[in-house]
């Protein structure tokens, strides 16, 4: 492999990794607060992608407005999902909420099939994101630069919000101890809604960039990225935002580089994420940056 090829793959890996990271944050935040694998999180990718597609396609809006609308609506959908499907079950056993999450995911996918039909649609990538630059023989689409940049900016913003604002402090408190924080006067329901909102908004941004990177929309498009991002979150240590980012980058980079170095194994690409996950879980069950939780007997 030449240096050029390596750099090209590396850039691809970084941009895929930042997409994973962006979506994994939503998983990790929800898990940190509700201890729930939000299976419907992957569907937010699909919702955002289709809204962005239709607002451009039918109303011929400029892309920035359409993306903005997509993000807003996806955020609302995410909050609604929590309100309608998870909130009534908050005191039930965790497996029931998990099933409810699977049910929501199923529902959104099938609703997608009814509304948008199962036929794949081609996403129109704005020219700003599809320009090709050639740097020392390496061809790179401008999107490859945009994705990591946007991710890093959003990440800094998120970390600032969580560490320095009142609502961020409340989020940390709820994640630490649900009952005590409600006794301390924190509106837990509001905080959970905010968490879902932020997670869904990030997933929407991730989803839009995902559909620019892989411009084919189907109602089940959120399934695999959703699972992989969850894996990224577990890899890094679920409940830990830095962990989700680290996990996302590790997963994205290794996935791309594996295919680049061992093209014979490219068919196993989807399985690779799971193999990595199982290896990590067996060596360090709480993930790379996860803290060991003391067990109460």
């Amino acid at each position: 492999m030449t240096l050029q090829e390596f750099l090209q793959n590396f850039a691809n890996g970084i941009s895929l990794g930042s997409l994973y990271a962006l979506i994994a944050i939503g998983y990790t935040m929800v898990y940190g607060i509700l201890r729930l694998i939000n299976f419907a999180h992957g569907e937010m990718i699909m919702v955002a992608a289709y809204i962005a597609f239709y607002t451009v396609f039918i109303f011929s809006m400029p892309w920035y407005i359409s993306f903005f609308i997509a993000i807003i609506i996806t955020t609302i959908v995410g909050i609604l999902v929590e309100r309608l499907a998870y909130k009534p079950l908050r005191s039930s056993p965790r497996v029931t909420i998990l099933i409810s999450a699977i049910g929501v995911s199923f529902f959104l996918q099938n609703l997608g099939i009814v509304l948008f039909t199962g036929r794949p649609k081609a996403f129109q990538v704005p020219t700003l994101f599809s320009q090709v630059y050639t740097i020392k023989g390496v061809n790179i689409v401008s999107l490859t630069f945009f994705i990591p940049t946007i991710t890093v900016v959003l990440l800094i913003l998120l970390v600032y919000v969580i560490n320095n604002t009142k609502i961020g402090m409340a989020m940390r408190a709820v994640a630490k101890d649900y009952d005590t924080s409600s006794l301390m006067g924190i509106d837990v329901n509001k905080i959970i809604s905010v968490t879902f909102g932020i997670g869904s908004a990030l997933a929407a941004i991730g989803g839009i960039m995902w559909s620019m990177k892989f411009p084919q929309l189907t109602p089940t498009m959120g399934l695999m990225p959703g699972l992989k991002c969850f894996i990224a979150a577990v890899l890094g240590g679920i409940g830990n935002i830095t962990g989700a980012v680290v996990g996302g980058f590790i997963l994205g980079l290794t996935e791309i580089l594996l295919v680049a170095f061992l093209p014979d194994l490219s068919g196993y690409r989807d399985a690779f994420a799971f193999i990595l996950l199982i290896l990590i879980l067996l060596v360090k069950p709480t993930g790379i940056l996860g803290e060991k939780i003391a067990e109460k007997v």
């Binding site: 898990y31 699972l227 199982i278 879980l281």
Partner: peptide, 27 residues
């Protein structure tokens, strides 16, 4: 190996194994 894990970790690991089996069969 995986039954040493618990709860959600077990869920995602077994789900992963299911997918691995399928991917192996595809290839």
């Amino acid at each position: 190996p995986v039954l040493r894990l618990r709860g959600d970790y077990l869920a995602i690991a077994t789900l992963g194994f299911g997918e691995i089996i399928r991917t192996v069969f595809t290839n």
